Simulated assay, not measured.
Amino acid sequence: MGFLSSRRRKSRLAPELDDQRLGKLLKSLMATTKTGMIATTDLCVAQISRVLDQDPGDWDRRAHRMGVLADYLAETHLPRSWVAREPGNADALGLHAWTQVARARRRGSLEDAAEAVDMCLRAAEIAPDDPTPWVILLEVARLEGRERSQVFGVWNEVLARDRWNREAYLSMLGYLSPEEAGSRVQVLEFVDSLGLRMPANVPCAAMELTAQVFQYHSLVERGGLEALMARNHWSQTTATQALDRVAHTWVQPGFLRHAKALADLNILAYALMAADRRREAAAVFAALGGVVTPWPWQTVGDPVTEFDQAQRRAAAGV
């Protein structure tokens, strides 16, 4: 990917990351929806379709764009209106289903699970090569607490279409966690099996490091002595090796090319600071150019504030 300039820029939340087309679309949607025009829905749909139709076959970037749009439009009627206008449009169906998932993540439950499942399956039938409907269906299966065989069945449908789908691997990481249907051992086994065959710069390259951050957060959240000793997590062999494997390669220009590379660099910067490896973290902050993702920074406070404070400590080396 083309990283942003290393010149210091004001830190900011940017859900589009470095996707300029998506960033322009979000700004345009904001401006369009404020007009109050009768044709607002048609204008928005045309703008969304134009962006989603770009880069055909780049499932990683399509999933990034669809996911960001789903979060952005989750509290609007636009996705449902688009499906009503174009019931045979796979993107419309997928976006509407994903907005339901986004709302469910905020509120705790799906409004209409049957409808979400139906839209995913219809989208999959219309666009059989696209893994995105199955990615959304995987989230629905998790939210609904479906049987393990069903979850893994959907997971296999994603992999059959996109071997290194980042969203699907993240979803399975959550599903196999102790907080859902698995255990810490299952998470470790999943990550280990992935590492044996995964190329170093695929879209799901951050799974091992993400799992380490999850484990670190679980220690912090327990409170008491375990929280006080949580920093020792990063001196353990598995955590140290996870950082060693990526700390120097990920910041190399052009090494990470997937749509959410800047999100993965946020995870790396956070982990390096937690491990007190500030000099290495400084190089990551420089590559980020001020682009902040809510997770993992928001776990201890306002993400931009936490990012800025960590960046200053990394630059000072103290």
Rank of each mutant, 00 (worst) to 15 (best):
S5E: 15
K10H: 11
R12V: 14
A14W: 03
E16Y: 12
L17D: 08
D18C: 02
D19G: 05
Q20C: 08
Q20N: 08
K27D: 14
L29V: 01
A31C: 05
A31H: 14
A31M: 06
T35I: 02
G36H: 02
D42R: 13
D42F: 11
D42H: 11
D42T: 09
L43P: 07
L43T: 12
A46Y: 13
L52M: 14
D55W: 10
G57K: 10
A63L: 03
H64F: 01
V68T: 11
L78P: 03
P79R: 06
W82P: 04
W82L: 00
R85T: 13
E86L: 11
E86K: 13
A90S: 15
L93K: 03
H96C: 12
H96F: 14
Q100L: 12
Q100E: 15
A102H: 12
A104N: 04
A104E: 08
R107F: 10
S109V: 12
L110K: 08
A114D: 14
A114N: 10
A114C: 00
E115G: 03
A116H: 08
D118I: 00
M119Q: 15
M119H: 14
L121T: 11
E125C: 04
E125R: 14
D130L: 01
V135G: 07
V135F: 02
R142G: 13
G145Y: 07
R146D: 15
R148D: 15
R148F: 10
Q150H: 13
N156P: 06
L159F: 02
D162A: 11
E167C: 07
Y169L: 05
L170P: 06
M172V: 05
L176Y: 02
S177H: 13
E180P: 00
A181G: 13
A181L: 05
V187D: 03
E189G: 14
G195W: 10
M198G: 01
P199V: 02
N201E: 12
V202S: 02
A206Y: 11
T210I: 08
A211G: 12
Q215R: 08
V220D: 00
E221I: 01
E221C: 00
R222K: 15
G223S: 06
L225H: 06
E226S: 13
E226M: 15
A227E: 13
A227H: 05
L228S: 12
M229V: 13
W234N: 03
W234E: 08
T238L: 07
A239E: 01
Q241Y: 10
A242H: 05
L243G: 07
L243A: 07
V246D: 00
T249R: 09
P253S: 04
L262M: 14
I267F: 07
A271V: 09
M273A: 09
R278T: 02
A283Q: 11
A283D: 14
A283L: 09
F285M: 01
A286I: 05
A287W: 07
G289H: 06
V291H: 05
V291D: 06
V292W: 04
P303T: 05
F307A: 00
D308G: 05
Q309K: 15
A314P: 02
